[in-house]
Amino acid sequence: MALIEIKDLHASVDGKEILKGVSLTINPGEMHALMGPNGTGKSTLSNVIAGRAGYEVTSGDVLLEGRSILDMEPNERSNAGVFLAFQYPVEIPGVATSTFLKAAINAKRKFAGQKEIDAMEFLKLVKARAKELNVRDDMLKRPVNVGFSGGEKKRAEILQMALLEPKFCILDETDSGLDIDALKVVSDGVNALRSADRSFLVITHYQRLLSYIVPDFVHVFAGGRIVRSGGKELAMELEENGYAEYVDAA
């Protein structure tokens, strides 16, 4: 069974239609890349899947393991296994990153009917994952994303992803604002999380990221829907020719 099935999805913001019939099937273990010019609705798609307020789905459906998630609250979708790595991770002043991580882990545990993680177990788990992602301990003590550099923010996102072990991960322009070293660390982190039952949708403007995170499928997004799909070579072609032909076609 497909992990994620997006069926002819239409959605609007303030009465303006942004998604105009998106269809996409992602099987367990697959890495999909969604590429396209800015302002065509890529981030809208990720927000609609995650259930952000202010987006109205007018028709179509999104199924996670065969079940529609459109009636679920954003936190329920998260607990069911949907993770969105934000393009602009949000600052929460005064809340230590470790406090936030623990709240998130326990929310998921509670949802699954498990007991809360104890302090020692939590510390061990976080430290192990943080080390793999080159996240220093002092970053865990600092307030969520406050004063983090661009690279730190993105690494913190991947750390959260690693801790919450989602089934379906959306990376929204994760490469934006990263220098080459940070890009490599983040990509290594994502690659380490690839597994036979976890799937990814990587949204990006540039081919650059896809040299590190190699996709199984590439989709071109323009005018509110997918206009072309192919293998990883499609990304190279886009790098060569740009998006002009798709923008015109849409």
């Binding site: 995650a50 259930g51 952000r52 307020a53 202010g54 609250e73 954003p74 936190n75 998260s78 607990n79 993770f83 969105l84 934000f86 991770p89 949000v90 600052e91 929460i92 936030f100 709240a103 998130a104 929310a107 998921k108 949802f111 959260q160 919450l164």
Partner: peptide, 15 residues
């Protein structure tokens, strides 16, 4: 902010 709230929700934390 709506952003802060959504960020927490997306990590599974209730409103």
């Amino acid at each position: 902010s709506e952003d802060q709230l959504f960020y927490c929700l997306q990590r599974g934390i209730g409103a």
